[in-house]
Design a binder for these strands. Structure first.
Lengths: 335, 335
DNA sequence: CACAAAGATGAAATCGATTACATGATCCTA
DNA sequence: TAGGATCATGTAATCGATTTCATCTTTGTG
């Protein structure tokens, strides 16, 4: 691999000039510039990244941690993040934490080692390492939350209005005449779940149906969606509608309902959350809250870049629009 | 941020000793080691990554490029890759190429800049940059293919026996009495598609049904699966079974079939490929070729690590086992 | 007890870039 | 035409680690 020295020698200039040609060509004379570029091309020179990074203290990398990359919601958010990062000259270090605190800490360590310039976390847990960092640097800490909103963390974030979305979903069901409604939440440790649950309660209260709520705790996975739905549909006073906090869980719930002999939407209405690519291909097509997943990723990156550029004094939280996509899985309650 | 100098000063030793304590503690006396570690802890020292990398010429990073991270097959492979990389002390740089040659080249450039030690590509296109590298270094080039097998590229790879898998899928359909069978392939530029198509033809020939094959070209996406299925089901001499080269396309095909009034599996049998997490939750549960997706990722990383460790002289290709998961979407042909 | 071997540590070169400062050449203006 | 301003380029310090080689101490052996 040729170094800047080789290029300098070949072009008969100093390394300083080579460096200038590559980063601030306008201060170099036309003739020299051409000579240097010729040498660069001839040798196939590319600046060594580690050397550059050591000198400039910039890595042009951001870490994105995610509890499970094989979850389509997260992979779509990552996709948006990767796109925006790439466009801004950054690359993405992927951290699949598999819900493990230890791995989260490990990835957070990359910031301390100057292995990355910033970090976006898509889960809800803020690793201790980062909490320290935020304690010291406040809003200047290069950390952004990808889709949850926890005002108390003091971290910028991109998210939708989860409570409002949940209200819309529940309102739809009540308007269709449902009374006894089952809800399968995500892990309650996550603010995203708590916000949605809050929305569920608000809507139920408004419709005087709080006592008719049937709440089960899931974890966003298709497996638990199936199991919890089975539980909800087994008891007496069976719900006539189910609201799942993720499309994956709705998929599981649909399978459970089918197995229990309920037809959707005739016997059971179903609402999901996220609007993953497959939602509309289910049978029936899934009514769901549509989140701008890629945009969440892009926005998170934009927030992080603002911090890295130093134009950010307080934590900002951006609320992106969502909408309720009404499809075939919801229908009037049968009496 | 404290540097190795700060630690050395505080522990009253040279930087060489600090470095030794951290990388080869056994050559340092007990007393010194403790003194140094105390200083490390007190200062919260972490070795600067760029400096280390500059000196050692190792980055402990591998690039994984993928045509579309939001595709569940790819995200599962990536998941396995990330896990294996992490376990071996490497981290993963994610390259979502969005099927763009330009982006592929861009990521390949990371190898030249020593921004990463190796690269795994999950698509089928080998960027020119890498072709050069392989031309120069042969099997020692730190490049591995993630799921396609192209012997002519001279690149190690991890994959299943796609042709054999396709034969099994088709045999199942013929054994169920189907004759006119529709096939929705992936892009024919990809060897993976061509191998599977070859398997399809072999099975058809064996059953004397080559003339009854109906072949459409898809791109692995749910959207094209739907459209191509619609086309196949519209013509005269409608197939009674469909074999799709991805579960996503099968999902689209299922939706198209439903819309066209075919019931699955009564009127139309359906076989997918991949066995993504959702396959078994479709209605009916999808019969499909089950690929060890995470294992493909892990194996690709293992191959790459072998190359990086210098214990690899010729390109190796590892064939992992697959199996045909027979579920509800296939049934006897109605006459 | 002398001398070699083994063990522990330090001094300094090195990796490959960037950049502050110095220098020399050219140009313009009074 | 002298003097400063402007422009182009070079010299060398610097970023923060690792590692070779040298030095000094300790231990072991005949």
């Amino acid at each position: 691999m040729p170094t800047i020295q080789d290029v300098a020698r070949r072009a008969r200039v100093s390394t300083a000039t080579v460096s200038r040609v590559l980063s601030t060509p306008e201060v170099v004379s036309e003739a020299t510039r051409e000579r240097v570029m010729a040498a660069v091309d001839a040798l196939g020179y590319e600046p060594n990244y580690a050397a550059k990074s050591l000198r400039t203290l910039r890595t042009a990398k951001i870490v994105v941690t995610v509890p499970d990359i094989s979850n389509p919601f997260f992979s779509s958010v990552i996709r948006g993040a990767e796109e925006a990062a790439q466009a801004a000259g950054y690359s993405v270090l992927l951290g699949d934490t598999r819900h493990s605190t230890e791995r989260e800490e490990q990835y957070a360590g990359m910031l301390r080692r100057k292995e990355a310039d910033g970090l976006i976390f898509l889960g809800h847990r803020l690793p201790d390492t980062l909490a320290d960092l935020i304690g010291r640097q406040g809003a200047k800490a290069p950390v952004v939350n990808g889709c949850e909103f926890s005002p108390d963390l003091g971290v910028s974030s991109a998210h939708i209005d989860n409570a409002a979305a949940a209200v819309e979903a529940m309102d739809l069901l009540y308007d269709l005449g449902h009374r006894t409604i089952g809800v399968i939440t995500g892990p309650l440790a996550s603010p995203i779940s708590r916000d949605r649950l809050e929305g569920v309660r608000v809507s139920a209260a408004r419709h005087g149906a709080e006592a008719a709520l049937r709440i089960a705790t899931g974890d966003f996975s298709v497996e638990l969606g199936e199991r919890e739905a089975q539980g909800l549909l087994a008891g007496g006073d069976t719900p006539t509608a189910l609201f799942c906090f993720s499309d994956e869980m709705a998929m599981g719930a649909l399978a459970a309902a089918r197995r229990a002999g309920h037809r959707c939407p005739d016997d059971l209405s179903l609402v999901g959350f996220d609007d993953i690519r497959f939602a509309r291909y289910l049978d029936p097509a899934l009514t769901t809250i549509s989140q701008p997943m890629e945009d969440l990723g892009r926005t998170a990156v934009a927030l992080l870049l603002d911090i890295l550029a130093g134009r950010q004094s307080a934590a900002r939280s951006v609320t992106l629009p969502h909408h309720l996509a009404v499809r075939g899985s919801t229908g009037p309650a049968r009496r």
